[in-house]
Design a protein around this nucleic acid. Structure first.
Lengths: 148, 148
DNA sequence: ATGCCTGCAAAATATTTGCATGTAA
DNA sequence: TTACATGCAAATATTTTGCAGGCAT
């Protein structure tokens, strides 16, 4: 048996990079995390929910359960590799772009899009109630497709 | 048997008012809607989720199921008597104040609070993508209790 | 060895649907 | 009477938990 985690002749530099990311985040390198990491952090930044990611993982022949996808998404979030975005009551979305920005949400097809940072800003912040402090401000601009 | 819906000697003006509201919204007057309407539209404006409202209804000796609470909340929303607020992925909240305003959300105890209109405003709106129009802008200011 | 970390089955939670029944016209 | 509205049991959807087994030390 060969160790599936140790570097070998067939390892791509992308995979090596992903391992480094996981280790830096304090997470063990496992088959499941490599598969999900590859889907999440390769190519374009994106917004996924657990179910979509699970479907992609299955399509990519990774063998893992939806529960593992949920747990991994939360671990990645806690590690700062993802940011959770609350745009739809139906399901939780995760954003691979963890920088400070806001979102469009297309209600028709449940699609999350980034709002370019600087495209909007606040005139003033509301005073938080006694004994409270602001942790984060989320803006969701809801969109509808124009039916012409 | 007396009709429980027809006005009678024991009907309060509040109940009469509620009936008028339901009829104006195009909804039939039923025992369940009267009970929920009384809990929602009497007294202070408030933010509830389905489960909380169901608990209150049970405490008020109204006999109805959680499914009915969900359906009624959605009917009231469609009729413009409530506004749905997406602040927490865990569950959907409904606001009895349907005017345009934003929300604080206390993460520690899942509490929704109104931000006074005018306490914050935007410097500029982002341009929606081609073929889309803005339906609504939601701002959620997330709060944490200061641990001193 | 040993004790923390993993991934998943099963449980818990949240919401929607389908249909028997009730009700207005 | 008739057709549509209503409320709820059951189904579905979403998320979390508990624990058997794996892995680093």
């Amino acid at each position: 048996m060969t160790d599936p985690i140790a570097p070998d002749d067939t390892e791509t530099s992308q995979q090596a990079c992903l391992k480094a990311i996981l280790r830096m985040a304090g997470l063990r390198v496992t088959r499941q995390r490599m598969a999900l990491g590859e889907l999440l952090f390769t190519g374009e930044r994106q917004h996924v929910n657990a179910d979509e990611l699970h479907q992609k993982a299955i399509a990519a022949r990774a063998n893992l359960t939806l529960a593992t996808v949920y747990n991994t998404l939360h671990q990645f979030s806690r590690a700062g590799l993802l940011r959770e975005v609350t745009v739809d009551a139906g399901s939780t979305y995760f954003d691979t772009d963890t920088s400070n920005h806001h979102h469009f949400f297309v209600e028709d097809d449940k699609q999350v899009l980034d709002i370019h940072p600087g495209a909007m800003s606040f005139d003033g912040f509301p005073e938080p109630p006694e004994g409270m402090e602001i942790t984060h401000i989320d803006v969701v601009v809801r969109l509808r497709k124009i039916s012409s």
